[in-house]
Design a protein around this nucleic acid. Structure first.
Lengths: 209, 209
DNA sequence: GGGGCGGCATGACATCTGTCATCCCGGACT
DNA sequence: AGTCCGGGATGACAGATGTCATGCCGCCCC
């Protein structure tokens, strides 16, 4: 159990699947005298156990990871270790990601093309009880509105993303081919596009997929 | 002009668009006593000028960058500064990327989920005249064969990737709609898939797009 | 000079996709 | 009880897409 009192070093967990990036971020944080990276994992489903075992103060989570996403890991951490501060760090500044990260209990949301100095800064701020969110992204998330797709529409769209045909989608999802087309049709209209490919594209880069 | 003689420090240029990753990699390399990161750029089209200005020994290039790709930058460097060693570092281990990186004059090809230690090691090896390539990837590149698509097919497929309709592609590429369909049809057959969406997918993750 | 290949085009045809109207069911809210 | 919404389905229809045969041009190579 760590105390987080002034002067003590912050115990950080790093979750990121690309080793080179992960170890590089560790090196970066290692330069800060008040921060210590005490655990590194490459999969979302190893986050909770590692956080428990190493009694970490702050978890730094990438979203795109095998096993489970950083968002899911954040939700688990928030439920099991409510004291723990969570920083979500991701490649894509998708408004939907920000929204779901916050709903999962994240304290900070950073994109990887922000200056590196913001990383250590964010760690310190969340520890002080602050929340850290890129204002531009926050605006986009609020303006963009919530995900308009129903669960089923999202499922079907996700399944259709790789170019599967309607018949294949139907068998894969245990639906009638006609129903698949109906869901895709409504999704297409809700997203104001003209075919499934465009629908996949916009849903993806809003973080709705 | 640097000498690269034993004992001298290696002058490295880092090209990577995501600041956080770039600065983290710089921190990582900074830990090595014999390596010095003397220049950092975030765009492909700034690589050549920076390499000239800072008299670098090794250029470390990400592929996915705005301006121009790391591959294109590598080709420029190789033509203008043949002495310079080039390490291509990328997120995706696509065989096609490896192939074109090598054709562009790269001396090493690393994927970001290799262990971080390989980065400094690769820098030293290329400087010693060695070539560094992941054997698994090399095998895949050789087995996978060359890109079977013609220039036009690739162009059309790339343009179709975002879900544009045939008519739109036709006007965008100054072609007849029928011709667009012909190209897509041949591309679909060459890639042994059943529609444009799948064609885009497989072309993409072979690095052929 | 003939053959092959790539770029470009057309027309015909079969299938796939997207839309719409319409239906049934169950849960939630008034 | 009535209404709305989401899940699931059917059938009909128009338009988009994929295939194929065929033709023309220009280039390169034997």
């Amino acid at each position: 159990m760590s105390t987080n009192s002034a002067g003590a070093t912050v115990r950080v967990l790093l979750a990121e699947d690309q080793s080179m990036v992960r170890e590089a971020l560790a090196a970066l944080l290692g330069l800060e005298p008040d921060i210590e990276v005490v655990a590194q994992v490459a999969r979302g489903d190893e986050v909770l156990a590692a956080a428990r075992e190493h009694a970490v103060d702050v978890a730094l989570l990438d979203i795109e990871m095998p096993g489970s996403t950083g968002i899911e890991a954040a939700a688990e951490l928030h439920a099991e270790l409510p004291e723990l501060k969570i920083v979500v760090l991701t490649t894509f500044g998708r408004p939907g990601y920000l929204r779901s990260a916050m709903e999962a209990g994240a304290d900070a949301f950073l994109v990887k093309d922000a200056p590196a100095a913001q990383l250590a800064e964010a760690v310190r701020k969340v520890l002080a009880g602050e929340r850290v969110i890129d204002p531009t992204l926050a605006a986009a998330a609020l303006a963009g509105g919530a995900n308009p797709l129903t669960d089923r529409e999202r499922e079907v769209l996700r399944a259709a993303a790789d170019g599967a045909t309607n018949a294949e989608l139907a068998t894969a999802l245990h639906l009638s081919p006609g129903t698949v087309r109906n869901y895709l049709s409504t999704a297409i209209q809700k997203l104001a596009v003209r075919n499934r490919a465009e629908a996949v594209k916009v849903a993806r880069d809003k973080g709705w997929l």
